[in-house]
């Protein structure tokens, strides 16, 4: 069980919005574990608390109770500041969104290398690492292209490269295959799986996508603010 401490471990996570009679419990004691190198699915109907859980995991909103460990670090206590949370997101969490949300005025390489460059790393070093990731994700040939000139699949691969640039121990993917057809969706899942194993990253994929649900070996179903662990089919991605 110690392996989960290096990935994601959530115990009794609660989130309440509002106070008194108007209070709404969005999360009522969530428990999850994701080991480094593992890709786990998170599914559930609309309003079940997926996005709230993702925001808590992404250090965007503060949980009301419970305990979270991301990449070996217990997060959220009274000592955390906004800058600490920014640094946590920058160094320990990678985000992949439903829409890639690439920065329109930066080329592919600089979109990927942006975070290390903003953190003060030498531009050449950051770009070299970005190039390595782009090669690993088979989009190195579009390194100088602007985001608007990429296909949807290429944009999503670039966003995955951006999520991996800081070698975060955790990646949170929010509907990463939603806008893609079956073939491209499976390609993205293959990449996430490969990158998770290669960089020993714990990956949570929030999805409604029926095409990719069978690919998870393990998944969590969230319902009414509580999670249930299920065994997935673990269908081969290859």
């Amino acid at each position: 069980m110690a392996e989960y401490d290096k990935g994601i471990r959530i115990e009794g996570l609660r989130k309440r919005f509002g106070e008194g009679e108007a209070a709404v419990d969005a999360l009522k004691g969530v428990n999850m574990q994701v080991a480094p190198g593992e890709v786990v699915g998170l599914i559930g109907p609309s309003g079940s608390g997926k996005s709230t859980l993702l925001k808590c995991l992404g250090a965007v909103i503060e949980p009301s109770g419970g305990r979270m460990t991301l990449g070996g670090q217990v997060i959220f206590d009274e000592r955390w500041t906004i800058d600490d949370l920014s640094a946590l997101r920058r160094d320990r969490i990678g985000f992949v969104f439903q829409a890639p949300y690439l920065i329109s005025f930066l080329n592919v390489t600089d979109n990927v290398a942006l975070l290390p460059m903003l953190a003060g790393q030498p531009n050449t070093e950051a770009r070299r690492r970005a190039q390595e990731l782009l090669e690993a994700l088979d989009v190195a040939h579009r390194a100088q292209a602007m985001p608007s000139h990429l296909s949807g699949g290429e944009q999503q691969r670039v966003s995955i490269a951006r999520a991996l640039i800081s070698r975060p121990p955790v990646i949170l993917a929010d509907e990463p295959t939603a806008p893609l057809d079956s073939e491209r969706a499976m390609a993205v899942m293959r990449i996430l799986d490969r990158m998770a194993r290669q960089y020993q990253t714990a990956v949570i994929v929030v999805t409604h996508d029926e095409k990719i649900i069978p690919t998870f070996k393990r998944l969590y179903r969230i319902r009414d603010g509580r999670t249930e662990e299920e065994s997935g089919e673990g269908r081969s991605l290859f």
Partner: peptide, 16 residues
Amino acid sequence: IREIAVLKLIGTRNRS
């Protein structure tokens, strides 16, 4: 504004 939200989410500091 959306790009700024993404920048903030992925850890860009407010001062940047």
